[in-house]
Simulated assay, not measured.
Amino acid sequence: MKQQNDPILIAKKVLQQEAEAIQGVADVIGNSPDFAQCVAAILSLRGRVVVTGIGKSAHIAGKMVATLNSTGTPALFMHAADAIHGDLGMIQADDFVIAISKSGDTPEIKVLVPLLKRKGVPLAALVSNAESYLAVQANYVLHAPVTREACPHNLAPTTSTTAALALGDALAVCLLESRAFSRQDFARLHPGGTLGKELYLKVGDLSRQNQQPRVRDDAALKEIILEISGKRLGATAVLNTQEELVGIITDGDLRRMLTTFEGRLDAVRALDILTPAPVTIDIDDFAVEALARMQARNITQLVVTDDGRFCGFIHLHDLLREGLV
């Protein structure tokens, strides 16, 4: 029998409580027009969204700012305690402020709110207590009701911060979809790391770094072997006299041919051993699509084409080097 302090039971209980809290936020979000009006106000904004909070709420505010910025809504973080020591100057006349506070009644918030109202900027309150000072003073209330923290002492912000985080994500995604923010837009804001590469790295960015092994369809076996060995991509394209792609020969094709061939090797030509209609990919396709095609067919290279014409190869090693595998 599991003990009362069993970590698995405790973890499951915490996750269940936090899941129920998020469901509770979803249940009340339609009870007031404030959420939809807040989205509309931010969409029409000429300035930035400034998100503020104190304590654990400040951490949630920082994450919300990061999500907004990465999905097309310019945003800044302002710590509520630092605001009255100079950081209030970051807020401009066209900005919009979101203040996060579970209680909505902390001393720092009570000092900050009159200063924000004096600046005349719209204020949204992301609060658990919709009757709090912050909620009453705000133009919009983003209600994230939480009756109890997951902490057994009902002290450490856990359930409340999770609910606030989820509501912030909901706001960011609403703005994203309202702006028809695309994968290409996302890529422009995420150029670094594997995620960025998945969204912007093109086949041509990699294939242009490689050599372009090619032989004519009447090339002899020796020429084929030298081309594959010299260009170090494990394959060569086979072209006809009109420079049209007619097939591919890989080092595997050579090994299989040498195992079964019984005639004169000096009579072998590229047409005798090529694989017709090889798998190709366009030079302007994303590199992740090249990876998907290689994985689907269990191969290590693709012929790259530009408007149907052969222009090189992309190899699995190219994708490994970029961290896409």
Rank of each mutant, 00 (worst) to 15 (best):
C38M: 02
K119M: 08
L142W: 00
F35L: 03
R118Q: 15
G196N: 11
D6L: 10
I273W: 03
N139F: 05
Y133H: 07
N240H: 08
H59W: 11
I60V: 15
P74N: 12
E289T: 13
V50K: 06
S57P: 03
M90K: 11
R48D: 09
A270M: 12
L76S: 04
A187P: 04
E149S: 00
P152N: 12
L45Q: 05
I54V: 15
G230S: 04
D253I: 04
T161Q: 13
V215A: 07
V39L: 06
V14P: 11
V288E: 03
P213E: 13
M90A: 14
T236V: 11
I8H: 05
D251P: 04
F261M: 10
P74C: 13
G312W: 00
V28P: 06
P278G: 07
I98C: 03
L45W: 02
P157Q: 04
D185S: 09
A130G: 08
T161K: 13
G192M: 10
A21N: 10
I54Q: 07
A80M: 06
F181L: 11
K12G: 14
D6P: 10
A277R: 04
R179L: 10
V50W: 06
D282Y: 03
V121G: 10
N210I: 12
V111F: 10
L116Q: 04
Q211P: 07
V28L: 04
R179G: 09
A124K: 00
A156F: 09
H315F: 02
R148I: 05
P114W: 11
Y200C: 01
K110P: 09
L319T: 14
E20L: 11
S103K: 04
A61K: 00
D272W: 11
Q295T: 12
L76G: 02
P145M: 01
A277Q: 15
V25L: 06
N31H: 13
V136D: 13
T260G: 06
L201V: 07
I314G: 01
S57F: 07
D218F: 12
G89T: 01
A166G: 12
T73Q: 11
D217K: 07
